[in-house]
């Protein structure tokens, strides 16, 4: 009867083995459930109603709030797609800059030179400003007739009231404002790449470009995935800049999806439609993010 005698240590582990990790996770799970999952669930619920929380009747409308987004003669169709277009333009223009430019800055700031800490602070500085400050500041600087920028160049460029200039302004301001954040993330990633790899590749005669391509980039892969994903999401959720700097002008051409959702949900108290648009935007972004992860995994496999 060789009953396996458990050692004191292992029996103790068995005793609080199964529940321990869940107990540790519980506090976060509770917070995530209440402030994450529940609002998402309620949002989906709202999107199936005509919902003004002050009105006594909140009729169930099924998928109407969704189908009207795809019905050309509905009230919201043209505004919705105009806002999707605005969000797409902004994302496509800003993400490449916000991924590439900070990488260059981070590589420069990773070298040893006098005043390095100072420059690291300088590039990060705009990020600490709130969107209200950034918005107001640039609205005045970029004003077509009274602004300093046109004064400086002696031009009459309509930076804020005509496209494509409004896009140049919005993307430019956002890059100026947030590229320091991505640069700091890159910088941390760069410092994690072992110096021996650079040393070895140098001994093997790799050029600077080859070292970048075969050592730096692969070493940054997880950081790059993080930066690209969060930057796409941040750009797709842009709101404050267009709300404050261009006010959606000309017409509603630079009004983003989030801005339109706020206008509908909070301005017009049309929470049902706003929720349906939020859910649709979420689904669109989920598709983009999944594609993003797929591409990176594909590169890893190959």
């Amino acid at each position: 009867m060789p009953t396996p005698v458990a050692s004191p240590g292992s029996s103790a582990r068995v005793m609080h083995g199964t529940s321990t990790p869940y107990l540790f996770l519980l506090p976060y799970l509770l917070i995530f459930g209440v402030f994450g999952l529940l609002p998402i669930g309620l949002g989906v619920w709202l999107s199936l109603h005509q919902w003004d929380f002050q009105l006594p009747n909140k009729p169930f409308t099924g998928l109407d709030n969704y189908t009207e987004l795809f019905t050309p003669d509905s009230l919201v169709y043209s505004d919705w797609w105009e806002s999707v277009r605005a969000t797409a333009i902004f994302t496509v223009l800003s993400v490449p800059l916000l991924v590439a430019l900070p990488l260059g800055i981070a590589m420069l700031l990773n070298r040893r030179f006098p005043g390095r800490t100072f420059f690291r602070a300088v590039y990060f500085a705009p990020y600490v400003l709130g969107v209200a400050v950034v918005g107001l500041l640039w609205r005045f600087l970029l004003d077509a007739n009274l602004g300093f920028v046109n004064h400086l160049f002696g031009t009459h460029t309509p930076w804020l009231t005509a496209t494509p200039w409004a896009w140049v302004s919005l993307v430019g301001v956002t890059v100026w404002w947030t590229c320091g954040f991505n640069a700091v993330i890159y910088l941390a990633g760069l410092q994690d790449i072992p110096a021996e790899l650079y040393e070895a590749s140098k001994m093997d005669g790799a050029s600077a470009w080859q070292r970048f391509w075969h050592v730096t980039l692969p070493g940054l892969r997880p950081v790059l995935l993080f930066v690209i994903t969060t930057t796409i999401l941040a750009s797709a959720n842009m709101f404050g800049q267009s709300y404050l700097i261009t006010q959606g002008a000309p017409g509603n051409e630079t009004r983003t999806v989030v801005s339109y959702v706020v206008a509908l949900g909070i301005g017009q108290n049309d929470a049902g439609r706003a929720a349906a648009m939020s859910v649709t935007l979420t689904l669109m972004l989920a598709v983009v993010s999944i594609a993003n992860f797929r591409i990176f995994r594909y590169q890893e496999d190959s």
Partner: peptide
């Protein structure tokens, strides 16, 4: 009037003699 007058620019210009 100039084209592309910005938010508040009309009033600020009145105050700054433009």
């Amino acid at each position: 009037s100039p084209a592309n007058v910005g938010q508040d620019a009309d009033y600020l210009a009145l105050k700054s003699n433009q």
